[in-house]
Design a protein around this nucleic acid. Structure first.
Lengths: 235, 235
DNA sequence: CTGGGCGAGATTGCATACAGATCGGCTGCG
DNA sequence: CGCAGCCGATCTGTATGCAATCTCGCCCAG
């Protein structure tokens, strides 16, 4: 009981001492996650446990476990005695809520990240920015841009050093990703400029400036999608 | 018992067409949640599926489902081929992270709540405050105070109208609750005064003031627990 | 006599197959 | 055309075999 103080620091050690074989449930989770993210399983479509079990060649137990996890993350919804189905597309209200929350978290993350910035992380961020710039103009590669952008923000969140904030943001980003795939606003040019400005703030470790830039970045991103939404863009 | 939990959702979701029979998994979840919250299952202790199955008189499937949900909420952790165990007590670092996050979310929630405040919600909040004041000085009833305080904040989060923020905060509050039970700082007097001030801001629908008051309330709460932590208080 | 390494039994979770219950749709009758 | 009842599909929950881990006693070296 009093060992709490001893064990907790260990939980933060970077290296995992033992590599356990992954559970089937995890594999199923990853498979489903990928299918949802690629819209291979479209929103609102039913997800049948036994079909998946046959398809993936496993029993129903790991499927259930994976679906339970996905439900908690809001990617699928469950109705008792009816079954699971992929979550609906975000409504306008949910979209606003999501960006409000991002506006609360991401500037903070940027500020902390700027303070904790290391040359290594900076290199990673520069690399991601370079890849995003390289693909500019290529409309087909938008999915790739979205992935890189997600990574960019995830790295910042991780560098901030607050695990809870990092997890909360990771959760949001998956939804943003789905939203993007449906209403793919091809406004990568602006986003790239905003990322570059952020990088400059990170280089000089200016937390206040990084927070400010992130705030405007998120606001502008929201505005870009909101315009798209009002136009009634269809997938 | 105040029907806060029942009445508020109704206000936001007017018509629930059908009351489906609750699934066993949900019941198991509630049972486990209660045991964890009451420390009947202490932190770091192993949670054996088959033992629970016999104890609750159900099979292993619903137990697994409940545990999967609890894992996503961070209340239990799973190690592949080892099993589940109750989550560890928060470390000092995690405690700081948690309060940083609360500081980001709760002032925002208070501001929005003030803007959306209705007489009905105000009544509920007043009722909760009254109950908390009534129990003042009674050390044994601290667990009860903690519950009321949690409700108080939950109602505010719900009134803010941002579901994502509400969910994020709900998640944090469960951890705060556990933390409190271990290091029960009996400083209810101060908290009650801060709640009263908040109520005044809600009455006048002053969002900016509510946000400010909430910020100081959270900061002071953090300071109260931090002092307790440094003293090395034991459960 | 003490301490460390090793292995077998017991324990536990993982995965599968199966039975019961419920829902939704289809068909046929009024 | 509408409604009632049946049937297939599907989910929920149970029982069981299997694989991996942990525990603890044994043996051997120092």
């Amino acid at each position: 009981m009093v060992k709490v103080d001893k064990e907790l620091p260990v939980a933060f050690e970077p290296a995992q001492p033992l590599r356990r074989p992954v559970s089937l449930g995890d594999e199923v989770y990853n498979a489903l996650f990928a299918r949802l993210m690629s819209l291979q399983i479209p929103p609102d479509s039913r997800i049948k446990i036994d079909v998946l079990a046959r398809e993936l060649g496993v029993s129903q137990t790991p499927i259930r476990e994976a679906l339970a996890r996905l439900e908690n993350e809001g990617l699928v919804v469950k109705t008792h005695l009816i079954g699971y189905r992929a979550a609906s597309q975000l409504s306008a209200k949910q979209f606003e809520d999501l960006y409000d929350l991002r506006l609360l978290l991401e500037p903070y993350a940027a500020e902390k990240a700027a303070e904790n910035m290391t040359p290594e992380v900076l290199d990673v961020l520069r690399g991601l920015e370079r890849e995003m710039s390289a693909g500019e103009g290529d409309e087909l590669a938008y999915g790739r841009f979205a992935q890189l952008d997600k990574r960019f923000h995830d790295v910042i969140a991780r560098t901030a050093g607050n695990t809870l904030v990092e997890e909360a943001l990771a959760r949001l980003h998956t939804h943003v990703h789905l939203f993007r795939l449906m209403y793919h606003a091809r406004v990568t040019g602006e986003a790239i400029k905003e990322h570059a400005a952020l990088l400059a703030a990170f280089e000089s470790r200016d937390g206040v400036e990084a927070a400010r830039l992130m705030r405007t970045h998120i606001k502008k991103a929201r505005a870009r999608f909101a315009a798209r939404l009002r136009q009634g863009a269809q997938p």
